[in-house]
Design a protein around this nucleic acid. Structure first.
Lengths: 351, 351
DNA sequence: CGACTCCGGTGTAACGATGCACCGACCATA
DNA sequence: TATGGTCGGTGCATCGTTACACCGGAGTCG
């Protein structure tokens, strides 16, 4: 089965394997149009499909890209995986899935493994702040896209970052809450170690400053980095719950809470309800990411949408684009415009 | 980079490539222990990793399994993908991800493509009731696991089905609702076309019959099979919402609603709330699957858990297990025991 | 007319790993 | 001393594709 080789095609079409190969690889200028058509129809009739292994062995470049995510069990990464695979498919590429479980060692091992399997393009969703350890691989020709991460000064040359503009997104949300009339707004996050958390926090602060509001409550939580077999999602939600409980029982509780992501926001919602209040009335809650859950949750969550489909497509393009003459000396950053999605979890404060 | 070949190892260790290859493939009995150790340490020192493409070209068997799911954007499939990848990793296998988007044509195309790429093991999460179209491939040696599906009479020989015991799970839930005191219980589902929906419905009915309760309300919905770019999840939730709205506004509304899966249950919850009632008080709502959302939702959803991790591991084992002498003439079915998870969305009916 | 240049191809040596078919040395047996 | 059997390896053809090197014939130019 599936045993039709390029030789079978060549024989059936009365040409050499070289000609078939040339056609397959777009070097079509070297043959008569009629020859070309004859070969093409032979390929179709025989149902020939090139053998990827042989092709890779020869060229060293498999038609596969790697995707390293913390866990596809998390709907955010699941969505990325889905759209990235769709984008890859349009060019005949496949996606190899790797779950790092947020373990830096595993993450590194996956990348090494993929590289030594000959894979030349990887989308890496790293939990590591620094990507220095891959700069050697990039120098050796690996195409590396860091997803959900913006460029840093010490980024390896050649690295492409794909991310939503966290600062703008958080600003949008800050403005939204302010425009509803909120004046005491808290920001809830796990430890602000990662780049995008920092950016979200800063964007948020900027919006408040512009509105002449004093520095808001900020609750961050150390957050255990345990990978205990859960997706980490439940953990994020729990963090939101604990933080919000503390805030609401404090002396001067906020009328709105902006969580660093949707999972945390969901935890916040639970705390609000546990405190006997209604989300979207007594307390407004906002998230970030717009994962599927956000629309399904009750109340439907006001959040900031990341254009996942476009971001995934861009990530693939960056991997697949033809080699460019030395790219900008600095690492590239592809920033996408976030979109405010107002649903039911935010409203004007009760006066 | 990564340019170390088996020849480099052989030269450095002072043996032939055959000996290295023998060692690599477990034919260790053919050499002196000291030779073996020398080669092993050389491999380690040089950081040699066998080239998968070359190995596959020679053996025809890549160290890769294929996973075809409707969409990894759906947390249920995301969880499967995660655990399957973890299981595969333990044996050095990688997972190639394919999203069929519930399109039968795409599903078929993916399988054909994987097969002609030489892949010998596929986990298929088909939306098709019949799997006849793959029986030819199975006869040709493809290992095929159908996930979330129980054996059918016309299944191709050699097919392995992995699924939770839907009947038992639904029975468990039926008993739970009855034991709480519910007497009018509705079952909400999309069109009961698929096998597991039928089984869930039957298990549910059985529990009610045993309790001497008359045939409950059943609401099914045709359900558009559109793949409009959503994950289908939102659609499932919407279905639950519409169905529950109708039930609750009817003449003799149920005190409990059992939805065919968690997504639908979430839609039901929304309808209940929209009707001005509280889930877990006026109306009990139950789901099936225990996706991450179930625990995060508000109220936390009572549901039936599928032991995903074990099921994924079993699926991989079925693909990877050594060829057995002609397996049972009939297709195999691996049924897993579901577990009732009682949370906050179900309670005794208000009297 | 001889030297060039295109055109439309073809021949073939790799790519790296595998595993069957060998092979020489040594030992036991008859 | 001939025969045969292990042991501990090695030699090499092979998998399907690619792309560089080459080639014969026709046309062009001076």
């Amino acid at each position: 089965m599936a045993g039709i080789t390029i030789l079978d095609v060549a024989r059936a079409a009365g040409v050499s394997t070289s000609t078939v190969s040339n056609l397959l690889n777009g070097r079509t200028g070297r043959m008569l149009p009629e020859t070309r058509e004859r070969v093409e129809s032979t390929i179709r009739e025989l149902g020939y499909r090139p053998n990827r292994a042989a092709r890779q062995l020869r060229t060293g470049k498999p038609q596969v890209i790697g995707l390293v995510v913390p866990s596809v069990g998390n709907p955010y990464w699941g969505a990325l995986a889905r759209y990235l695979e769709a984008a890859a498919l349009t060019e005949g590429y496949h996606v190899l899935l790797c779950n790092s479980e947020r373990d830096p060692a595993r993450e590194r091992q996956y990348v090494d493994e993929l590289v030594s399997d000959g894979i030349r393009g990887i989308v890496l969703c790293s939990s590591l702040p620094s990507l220095e350890h891959v700069s050697g691989l990039i120098d050796d020709g690996l195409r590396l896209v860091a997803f959900d991460r913006t460029a840093q000064v010490d980024d390896p040359v050649g690295l492409v970052n794909v991310s939503v503009d966290n600062t703008v997104g958080a600003e949008l949300m800050g403005e939204h809450l302010v425009s509803l009339g909120h004046r005491r707004i808290a920001f809830v996050s796990g430890a602000i170690r990662s780049v995008n958390r920092t950016e979200r926090f800063e964007g948020f602060l900027r919006a408040l400053e512009r509105a002449g509001i004093a520095r808001p409550d900020v609750v961050t939580w150390p957050g255990s980095s345990s990978a205990d077999g859960t997706f980490g999602d439940v953990e994020a939600a729990e963090l939101g719950r604990v933080a919000a409980t503390e805030l609401l029982s404090g002396p001067n509780p906020p009328s709105a809470i902006f969580a660093v992501n949707d999972m945390t926001a969901i935890g916040v919602c639970r705390a609000v309800r546990d405190a006997g209040m209604e989300v979207g009335r007594e307390v407004s809650v906002a998230g970030f990411d717009d994962i599927v859950l956000a629309e399904l949750y009750s109340p439907r969550l006001t959040t900031v949408r990341q254009p996942m489909k476009e971001m995934a497509a861009a990530a693939f393009r960056a991997l697949h684009a033809p080699e460019q003459a030395q790219p900008t000396a600095q690492a590239t950053s592809l920033l996408f415009r976030p979109e405010l999605v107002v649903r039911d979890s935010t409203a004007a404060p009760v006066s």
